[in-house]
Write a protein that binds this DNA or RNA. Structure first.
Lengths: 120, 120
DNA sequence: TATCTATATTGATGTCTATCTATAAGTTTG
DNA sequence: CAAACTTATAGATAGACATCAATATAGATA
């Protein structure tokens, strides 16, 4: 995309680079906020593991399935689920007493697409 | 991977689900910590945009290229770069007065691979 | 109706984070 | 060597976050 940076020849052998004019904020501020919220939600070991558990559950994972795997209280797990939900990473649906959680594949695909647009 | 959850038949038409025995922590704790650190680093709008800028720079992006795009002080940008570096997302190399930043493609590929293993 | 169960909410607390100003460290130029 | 420039570090502060105990909500069961 960008070409090697131009350099200003100075006395002797030293060169001085100029600031790269080709770099642009390809991610708009509001998109950056949305994506960052999703990344932040995954940026906690327990939430990442919860998210992975839900991804295995075929849309029927409930909180009690999750709590078993962690040495944390129920309110803490509930909090982490809310963070994932608010970030749009999962959707939750009440089914009687239980709440079933499922992955939001759309946002996962968006993140993967974003990352694939980044190469050095 | 998992099959539909077994249900315990009760009186009438109601059923009661059992806890899903098939869910397992596929992400080990230490891997979860490592991945979460990377996600957390990307979990800030400015850092995500910085990361995108660096991805455009062909390994020659320096801090002054980045500061231009944000209404933040130089120490703050320096801090965000350190967070990205500590998370293994970028590598930085001193070149005279300047420090050149480049993407660590390996970890990006790892994240993409992790996400691709998650489907509902 | 009373009880049990699954989940959510509230409030408290200690820790972490983002940002700034001021300053230091190291490099290049004059 | 001194001045200018790029980046990093230290210290301070306001706000956010993770966690827990206690409690509330609401559906299911007896």
């Amino acid at each position: 995309m960008t070409s090697p940076l131009p350099r200003v020849k100075l006395e002797g052998s030293s060169t001085r680079r100029t600031c790269d004019p080709n770099l642009q904020l390809r991610i708009a501020s509001d998109a950056a906020v949305t994506f960052a919220e999703a990344f932040k939600a995954l940026g906690h070991p327990v939430r990442l593991q919860i998210f992975d558990l839900i991804s295995q559950g075929l849309g029927e994972t409930c909180s009690c399935d999750i709590e078993q795997h962690f040495d944390l209280t129920q309110p803490t797990i509930s909090h982490h689920l809310k963070v994932l939900r608010d970030a749009g990473l999962i959707a939750s649906e009440s089914r009687g007493v239980w709440v079933h959680h499922r992955l939001n594949q759309t946002i996962i695909d968006s993140i993967r697409s974003l990352l694939s647009s980044m190469h050095p």
